[in-house]
Design a protein around this nucleic acid. Structure first.
Lengths: 365, 365
DNA sequence: TTTCCGTGCGCAATCGATTGCGCACATTGG
DNA sequence: CCAATGTGCGCAATCGATTGCGCACGGAAA
């Protein structure tokens, strides 16, 4: 309704119009009124005037005095795609709740950028850093939480998916559909999930007594976002002419690319080839056919990351902290996977093994 | 290599160890040495000591004094989807180039949040604000640039698409394919593009002598992101049983939803019904069928927005500024549109009418 | 009447950097 | 020998909020 004042009002001005000292007004605004024996009536007057004038303390000045900025830095590989941005939206949730803001920078897999960002953020006095799918190679004087960054370093807490469970869910699903010749598309070498995931797959395959044929394993190389790389490696896979009945892709975007390549080769999904994705980004459910995929609780991971930095920032006590917080995937069965051969049964349901479990390590005092 | 210093050194400390005043050190660090006649030798001493001790000016203190923060605020509706995030990545490009950082907040169409954000950002002393598909209802003491926010207010520069051209491209395309009964899905009332776009469509239809049948016009209502709303209104459209041969959707996500609904009704796209999207988000090209759509140069729009705030921040002179910067759409023909009836010709090409034109209004001095 | 105490609030320093103004000394011209 | 000019740098205020310490006043107790 009311037009915003052109210039934010300062504490001094507010104090002047109330004929009070800045100290008094400041204390009231910050809820330390009773501790300083300020008359109830005065409190009301001040609070009212503050609201009326839309007083908001200048963050710079406050930060300078308190040596706090209520700001954290977020480092992601890309801003435009679904993975990081979903995590970011989870981060935002938690942060804003506590009055924190955040800077975002993306490095697009350029090492020079990645290396420079932590210092830049520190020069901005961030109180903590969250790295999404990116690994930080320095020791920093602020708390660092990493989402899917599997370089285990001292002082860096990881938010990570239970890749073993993910692999088991995926392979058990494909096995139950009768697939024995499964092709795998591994992630790019620079993606921090790649290794861990692959190890988990190898392990799960062993447990389930599924053989992994090296000829059917390809790896994404191109750093390009989008479906191109997935398409390329799938073509490559088809040209090798080793028969397979299913593809387990590194992520949904890749799975979508794979489907395009299959279609191009006149192969039907899932009738001829089943395709299993990973992540469960929005496009997964709207794609045609809708993607069967391993759901990652990306938003929760962002929330957990933010919650963790916040608690690290609050705690001074170095009581033993977990090195990692684990979140759990779900198998989401849609239409891109089906029985091998000519049987077709449609089964669309979410089989969740465990619900997401996040321990917030708040101070218990 | 070197571990980050645990505690940053201050100007005062640096000055003390150099036995110089803070003023002098500050001036040298900020490159104002010659303007203040500081001896060359002193400069070297200072610069060397600064580097050695890893001195970095405290951003808070500097910001407080100079009333500069090299930070701008970005307000978007949602962080997780493709429209805003593509714009953001364009914004980031331009901003980082000039050493600016940015805060992001999303309002999720909640008016209370939207109203509060500008103040919060001002309390953080941002030097400018970019609002993406969101309208700012206050006069702010900093430059505001709006991307697709069509509330024309004084002092707010809009980055906007040429909707007239977009409408003409779209309708001319559909008309050339023989469509006469075209259904329209209008945007949500809160989306700032909705009105302008609709007016442009009405105008273009008139020019092309295409009749708009009110019975074939529906509007998105739900604020939910994703394809749900598009699916819903399309079902509604089908139930009304007014025949149509094409749908022009408000955006790609809606178009994808529409296709799902059509499929559900056993209608083939584009054989039975053509669907035309808008925006050209990443999913548009990877969808099956790939979407024919009106491409918006979202990234460029972000860059233009950032470039514009930066130039507004630099200029003090209030020389006449454009109220808007226009960018131009392209028609991207893929596979979701086709000839009406039983003809099928595949035409896949980008017909661009004009290339993107952006006037950067740099100071000319 | 003096001392005490509780109530209610203000003074002034501080955080770290920037900046308008001005001072001290050396050199040079007259 | 004195003034003028140039060279090199420092003083102190300032940005806006926070905070340790302390002051003034009125009433009660001694």
């Amino acid at each position: 309704m009311a037009k915003a004042p052109i210039k934010p009002i300062t504490l001094k001005e507010l104090a002047a119009m109330l004929e009070l000292s800045q100290s008094t007004v400041s204390r009231i605004i910050n809820g330390e009124a009773t501790a300083h024996r300020i008359a109830e009536e005065t409190q009301q007057r001040v609070l009212h005037a503050a609201a009326l004038n839309g007083y908001v303390a200048n963050t710079m000045a406050r930060g300078l005095r308190q040596k706090r900025t209520y700001t954290i830095g977020v480092i992601v590989p890309e801003i435009s795609e679904g993975y990081s941005t979903t995590v970011i939206s989870g981060i935002e949730d938690e942060l804003l709740k506590d009055g924190f803001f955040y800077f975002v920078v993306s490095h697009r897999h350029r090492a020079d950028l990645l290396d420079g960002y932590p210092r830049m953020m520190l020069a901005r006095s961030v109180e903590g850093i969250i790295a999404v799918d990116s690994s930080i190679n320095e020791d920093l004087p602020v708390p660092v939480v990493s989402v899917s960054g599997h370089t285990h370093r001292d002082g860096v807490i990881n938010i990570e998916l239970d890749h073993d469970l993910a692999a088991r869910l995926a392979l058990a699903h494909l096995k139950s559909l009768g697939h024995r010749q499964i092709a795998f598309i591994k992630g790019q070498p620079f993606s921090s999930d790649t290794d861990l995931r692959w190890k988990a797959i190898v392990q799960a395959a062993r447990e389930l007594q599924l053989a992994i044929d090296d000829q059917l394993v390809v790896q994404l190389r191109s750093p390009d976002p989008g479906t191109g790389p997935g398409e390329d490696v799938t073509r490559q896979l088809l040209q090798a002419k080793h028969p397979f009945t299913a593809i387990f892709a590194f992520n949904d975007v890749t799975a979508i690319g794979a489907i395009s390549a299959l279609r191009e080769a006149s192969l039907r999904v899932p009738k001829d080839i089943s395709v299993l994705g990973f992540d469960d980004i929005m496009a997964a459910s709207t794609h045609h056919p809708p993607l069967t995929t391993i759901h990652q609780p990306l938003r929760s991971m962002g929330q957990a990351a933010a919650g963790t930095v916040l608690s690290l920032i609050r705690d001074d006590a170095p009581h033993p902290r977990p090195a990692a917080i684990t979140v759990y995937p779900k198998l989401v069965v849609r239409k891109s996977t089906g029985h091998v051969a000519h049987h077709t049964e449609s089964s669309a349901q979410v089989s969740d093994m465990r619900s997401i479990t996040i321990q917030s390590n708040e101070a218990t005092s």
